[in-house]
Design a protein around this nucleic acid. Structure first.
Lengths: 337, 337
DNA sequence: CTGAAAGCGCTTACAG
DNA sequence: CTGAAAGCGCTTACAG
């Protein structure tokens, strides 16, 4: 493998001159530059990433801290990962995977070993233990998701509250006065997924404002349990004819159960939901919905992180909530009164 | 941040002595070692990963090359990624994500910049363009999946042929003499997913051996198309009462369609399938099946790669096919004759 | 067993 | 605009 010294010799210049054309931080005579570039091409030279990192004190790598080991229903996770890698690459950053069960420990180790320049934390929970080491070390980081307290760290997430309002309004606009709200099991609320809470609270508030009566059903986890809960909720003769869903397992099972009960959408039931586009695609879900947008959220998060890396003394940390987009799929009919 | 020089000074020894206790490659007097370790603890010192990499000429990072951008139906991909990262960590390797659409280019760049010590290639296709640069550079690598020709590179994959045989035998053992074989759309065969071919050919051969008549149905892509194809295949009055499935989209849709047609398993239909455990879990599939095992395959692949890194002049490249495990779920009934 | 020196492949002030 | 020198933080022969 050719080194910068080989290139310098081949071009008949000093190593520092080669470095100057490599980094582009200095002005070099076009003629000299051409000689250097010819030598680079001839020797098929590439900069040694690690050596440059040592000299510049920047690894040009981002650490991606992702919790995999808590069984989460997340076919969308891969989408986030690749979106983050793509966004990072646009800024010439690589992505190092930090998947240890002990995320906090992984962070401390990676920071101490100077393996990365900054961190992206995925699937944040309410009191996320990974935030501690970041605050302690003051290491640059961005959160994708929302903890109880961002503690001065930039955070990006979908605006679940706005999503809830959009969906409630959509039902209310169609004239519905009552709806069954199928939400997450209690464990999800308790385990600190703030999206569950943010959606629910906003849905309740907006429903009150729009005088829509919400019948809240917390569906248990597990396919069989979901099926049973759904059948129970839908089979009641007094059940509202509108469904507001925020629960991936439930919305995935919904077409099957509705069909089993001989119910059709939107004739028998109006349905709106918030779920990931990935889930909708895999299950071919035919419902008007607000879709979480991993690509947009990931790109925004990386952009914010890189900007902060470039200007460390920039403005205070920001929390960015991405406005949800409603995708209409004709699953809502006017209420019959 | 403390450096090795700070530690040496604090402990009153030379830098090389600190390095000796760090690497453990030399014998150090217990007393000296204790002094060094105390200094390390006091200064909260960690080895700079990049500096060590430069000195040792080993990054201790594996590059994970994954094709994301060809829309693949793969909720299991995240499982592979984390399994690879976990396996790598057991050998003290980190994982750098290489997700560029141009995988071959990404490989050349990463190798040239010496960013990684070896490569893991995921979702291999028949004539995978990423194999070229690996053969050219002779860089250590392992394939997860099976190309047409491994070209002297280690490869690990599930034994799809054995999986097919196990499932065919399972039906034959129950007395079935004919079965409908629901396989992938033609595009999948043509796009070089060798698993499709390997399964099909073995299923055909084993069925012939067991005198099981196989009615091969290649199901088109797309949720609606799958549904239609399934209904057509199952609604025929002359349709065999046994189903052999190798197609994720089809098996995911199967419970719904069977239900729509008022058919039950195993009373009306015996069903066996090969699909990922992840898919089975998400869709709660109740079928006896051979499940692809991302964790086992990934771990094996990384182990093989690391061994080759340790002993570069080891034996010739090996192709390892992981034996499939049959998970029985009582979806097969004896044939009625 | 310990230490002084050279080297890994770069970049970056600093002279000229 | 170009070059010689020092330095990034380690490891590794090589003396002693």
């Amino acid at each position: 493998m050719a080194t910068i010294a080989d290139v310098a010799q081949e071009a008949g210049v000093a190593r520092s001159t080669v470095s100057a054309v490599l980094t582009g931080r200095k002005v070099v005579l076009p003629e000299t530059r051409a000689r250097v570039e010819a030598a680079i091409a001839k020797l098929d030279y590439s900069v040694d990433h690690g050596a440059r990192a040592l000299a510049t004190r920047r690894t040009m790598n981002l650490g991606l801290v992702v919790r995999f080991h808590e069984a989460e229903f997340s076919p969308a996770l891969a989408t986030y990962i690749v979106a983050i890698a793509d966004a990072a690459r646009e800024h010439d950053y690589g992505v190092l995977l930090l998947t240890q069960p002990d995320g906090a420990g992984a962070i401390r180790a990676a920071v101490a070993a100077r393996q990365v320049d900054a961190l992206v934390l995925l699937n944040i929970i309410q009191d996320d233990p990974r935030i501690g080491p970041i605050v302690d070390t003051g290491f640059p980081a961005v959160l994708i998701g929302m903890p109880r307290d961002t503690q001065g760290i930039d955070a990006v997430d979908l605006d679940f509250a706005a999503g809830a309002r959009v969906l409630v309004d959509h039902l209310a606009d169609a004239g519905h006065r009552e709806a069954t709200f199928l939400t997450w099991p209690d464990e999800v609320f308790q385990s600190g997924r703030t999206y569950a809470e943010r959606f629910r609270d906003a849905a309740v508030a907006e429903a009150a404002r729009r005088r829509l009566v919400l019948d809240i059903v917390s569906c248990p986890a597990g396919p069989e349990q979901v099926r049973d809960a759904l059948r129970t909720a839908l089979a009641r003769s007094t059940a509202p004819r509108a469904l507001l869903v925020h629960n991936d397992a439930v919305v995935a099972m919904l077409p099957t159960v509705l069909h089993e009960l001989g119910l059709s959408v939107p004739d028998d039931y109006s349905v709106v939901s918030l779920h990931s586009a990935e889930l909708g695609r895999i299950f071919a879900l035919p419902y008007t919905s607000v879709e979480s947008e991993p690509e947009r959220v990931s790109k925004l998060a990386v952009d914010i992180l890189v900007r902060r890396l470039t200007a460390p003394d920039g403005p205070a940390a920001v929390t960015t909530l991405v406005a949800p987009r409603l995708v209409e799929r004709a699953s809502v009919a006017p209420a019959v009164s």
